[in-house]
Amino acid sequence: MSRSQEAAIGRPTDVAVPRVGFGRWFRKHKLEVALVIPLVAYVMVLTVVPILDTFRISLSGRAGNSFPSAQNYTSIFASRVFRTAIKNTIIVSLLSLSMELVLGMIVALTLHAKFFARGFVRTVALIPLGVPTIVSGAIMLLLFSRSGYLNSLMFVFVDLVNNIPGVNLEFQALSWTVAGGWRTLFTVAVADMWKVLPIVTLIFLAGLQSISEDVYEAASVDGATKWQRFMRITLPLLVPFITMAIILRAIDAFRIYELALVLAGRIEPVLGTYIGGRYLPPTNDPFTAASASIVLFGIIMIFIVAYLKFVAGRSRSA
């Protein structure tokens, strides 16, 4: 091959993998390489390296000379607070995930139906997306505390119902956030759900819009009821969208931090607040924080792999 052909002009944007030789490929795609390098370098230096570094920290002994050591892991698993945090994280995540999926589906079905002022309702339904997470935490605090507005609403409701002759309900003001246990975790899950419901709804709505109207028409001609159409057509066709929603949301749900920090604080720790609490002053313990964050990553991975393997895999073959 002659020198002139070596420098031949390729399809300008066809960044094919080097086959002929790296030097030649590089000369041809200098510009392209220059354009990707900043992103690649950034992701390497400020994502990949820190992940590996945190992993290293998690295996480092406090004395500093005993690498690798599982000491951090054994000590966190020995801690009752940490075990509670794991349990709470899983409870909150699964709770908010399942509420989001069910409600998201209902809202998506609602917004998919044609009705008066649907455009307006769709816009309003997106509002929580625009509320900062920390603000939604503040809001939930206003709602769920002992002198909170949820109690106010409940009183209004009870009074209304009691207007009906013969009905006499009693209502005791409840404190949700500081109660501890299930009630607090439930509050965190509800807060999370309120905030992200629009995303789940949007994903499902995209799925619903991807199903062609004639499939439903064919099904109703075949005599399927509304419920059957939903179970036999809508749900199966939505599987990829449901999978996407679950994976996207599960990742975020397990990482929940601000809401738990504001609503549950030290009463019911989740992994996010546990890690934050260890790392930040006054504790200042990066070793525990690092190993706990690796455990959190492990939980996310296990969930996704298990989901893809047992749930998504099975429903596809069915």
Partner: peptide, 19 residues
Amino acid sequence: LLVTRMFPEFTIGVSVATR
């Protein structure tokens, strides 16, 4: 690129904040 999002911010953040 999307897989980097599967890592908890803390997994990245602990190291980044220390540095």
